[in-house]
Design a protein around this nucleic acid. Structure first.
Lengths: 195, 195
DNA sequence: ACCCCCATGTAAACGGTTACATGATTTC
DNA sequence: GAAATCATGTAACCGTTTACATGGGGGT
């Protein structure tokens, strides 16, 4: 049995932010959890309808946002559903990294591909780091935010992941060096140096 | 435009291993890249048929494996397709971690949920580490393997990711402590201590 | 006799992205 | 006046998982 996660992301965001439109929820996801979650409008809008049908959210009065903007509010039942989901052990983890897969097979590619893949993985991680630091500064500027702990935790996780990625890329390039210069022997020597 | 990755995983495995059945390919995936990729039989068997139709693989003679076991071999065209895919920049990355999502929303759960989630994330990472080390020992026992570099690279990545996860979990628990004992002020102090 | 592993496959359902359509409002 | 952003939605398509079906071979 699989479980749709989208609805709980929507409920979670509405639990944090009082009243939001689908568009704003999407923006909030991109702002806060973008390093480990994403949702498309094609998921968000139909799911909001379903949540409203089940009385887990309810339409809030339209104020001066945009003409068509429909803000939603979480209901007590919605908070209950969210709490219940949070209490269940998480099961799904993505486990899909195309870059690493390519690196794994790269012996069968054009020469130099392994290095190129590692280098671009490093660049991607470095690029990830910048918005994370910007997010950190933003969060730190409002110490009264009740979600301060949550925000810092996920920021720290994204940062740690990016840093680990960068460190691995550098080590990986060293292992490539050793392999190219001294074959299996040198590679294993380099490997054993820092296990 | 999206691109099916399954076929290239199959081609890659057949490029590494000479002749394999669908079942063996699945086992090889679970052995080597399971930390960042997975395939189900429902994907593998139909895709093998398609690859055979396109002459990227071809049926190898059945030897004494099992009665129904059908080994496949990669063709030169298949190697070409694999090489071409490896040369294209990787695009998809999963970006989906339900555990972290729950941690992010855990302020709206029963008290203690945040800690419980972090603790179970830590345990999961520790459990991941054991088979990785076993895999490392296995790879190191055969230094003549032409895929030695590839294997060590992905093993090192899995290990680095698991270790980073464990380290983050410990820091996260410390941040929880600070928050619970001294509120925002203590949390920020702890945060700034090791940024 | 029973159970587990090997082995292949199909069909349904689901989760998710992409493309498309539409139009208001704000900013340069 | 043009461009960007705000805003909602639908339909098609695709990738993936799950459940189901089937049966041989080997071990206890």
């Amino acid at each position: 049995m699989r479980e749709p996660t989208t609805r709980y992301v929507l409920l979670g965001m509405l639990a944090m932010h009082e009243a939001m439109t689908g568009y704003e929820i999407r923006a909030a996801i991109e702002l806060s959890v973008r390093n480990f979650w994403q949702e498309s409008f094609g998921q968000i809008y139909p799911e909001l309808r379903r949540l409203a049908d089940e009385r887990l959210i309810r339409a809030a009065p339209r104020d001066g946002r945009g003409r068509d903007a429909q803000p939603w509010r979480i209901t007590p039942a919605g908070r209950g559903a969210l709490r219940e989901w949070l209490g269940r052990p998480p099961q799904r983890q993505a486990r899909r990294d195309e870059t690493l897969l390519k690196i794994f097979f790269s012996r069968h590619a054009e020469p130099g591909t392994t290095r190129a893949l590692i280098a671009s993985a490093r660049e991607a991680a470095v690029a990830q780091l910048e918005p994370i630091e910007a997010g950190a500064r933003m969060v730190l500027s409002d110490p009264d935010d009740p979600d301060l702990l949550s925000s810092l935790l996920v920021i720290d996780r994204g940062r740690a992941a990016a840093r680990a990625q960068i460190a691995w890329c550098e080590r990986a390039l060293e292992l490539c060096d050793a392999w190219e210069q001294g074959g299996a022997e040198a590679l294993l020597a380099r490997w054993r140096k820092t296990p």
